[in-house]
Structure formats: structure tokens, C-alpha cells
């Protein structure tokens, strides 16, 4: 369970929240002019990166407001929460070097459980 800081209610347990998918996906106003492929891209296709990801959450058991979150999906580190309509703030995080790589720490995955001798202790 994470702790999530609702922009309105403060820090609460994850069990009060629901995930609502990728953030900053605007609903096309001109759906009728889009090709099937373009429309399908909006309806069906979402990014699922390993690393930094902007996603929406809703404080289901609390104030019921939707808000945005920047989360490092490789480590579950929550880097920022911000209101709907706002731009994602600049953050720095331990990101995997490649899409299939590992964050240098925090994932608990095999490749980063143990430090290499040359790593600073």
C-alpha cells in the first residue's frame, strides 16, 4: 500500500483511492473527423512505461476528486500530485536506462538487489 497525498485532503492510505488510468489524454472534440485508427488510439491505447508516468487517481473514499500523479512505475515512487488541468511539474527520479532496464535502486528486482563492488557504499 502506498501513501498518496490527495491535493485536497492530504496524505492518506492508498486503499482510499482508485487509479483512473493515464493522465493528459484529452477526449478528441472532433471524433467524427477522425479515422478509425485515430479514434482507436484515444479509446483503446494507453502508455504503460516502466519509469516516470503521469496518471490519474480519484480519492474514492474521501473527497471523490480526480487528480494527477507522477509515479515512477519501476519503483512506485510518487514524485508529485497536481490538480486536473495543471501541467506536470519537473521532477527527477531514478529511471531505468532503457525500457527493459532497471532503475538503479528501488524496484527490488533481481538486477538491483545487490550492490556491485564498484558502487559507492
Amino acid at each position: 500500500m502506498f501513501l498518496i497525498t490527495c491535493p485536497y485532503c492530504g496524505t492518506r492510505d492508498q486503499s482510499e483511492f482508485s487509479n483512473a488510468g493515464e493522465a493528459h489524454v484529452a477526449r478528441p472534440a472532433n471524433g467524427e473527423e477522425l479515422t478509425d485508427e485515430q479514434w482507436a488510439d484515444f479509446v483503446f491505447l494507453r502508455n504503460n512505461p516502466k519509469g516516470l508516468f503521469a496518471e490519474r487517481w480519484v480519492h474514492t473514499a474521501g473527497c471523490r476528486r480526480f487528480f494527477n500523479m507522477l509515479r515512477n512505475t519501476a519503483t512506485d515512487e510518487i514524485l508529485a500530485v497536481y490538480e486536473i488541468g495543471a501541467k506536470p511539474p519537473k521532477v527527477t527520479t531514478v529511471e531505468p536506462a532503457t525500457p527493459s532496464g532497471e532503475a538503479p535502486i528501488g524496484s527490488g528486482n533481481d538486477a538491483v538487489k545487490v550492490m556491485r563492488p564498484e558502487e559507492p557504499k
Binding site: 519503483t75 535502486i105 528501488g106 524496484s107 527490488g108 538491483v112 538487489k113 545487490v114 550492490m115 558502487e119 557504499k121
Partner: peptide, 10 residues
């Protein structure tokens, strides 16, 4: 410690 995702040293 390892469950907390800290890195171990040999």
C-alpha cells in the same frame, strides 16, 4: 531490509 528494496552489500 531487502524487502524494503534497499540494496545489499556482500
Amino acid at each position: 531490509f531487502s524487502q524494503s528494496r534497499g540494496k545489499l552489500v556482500y
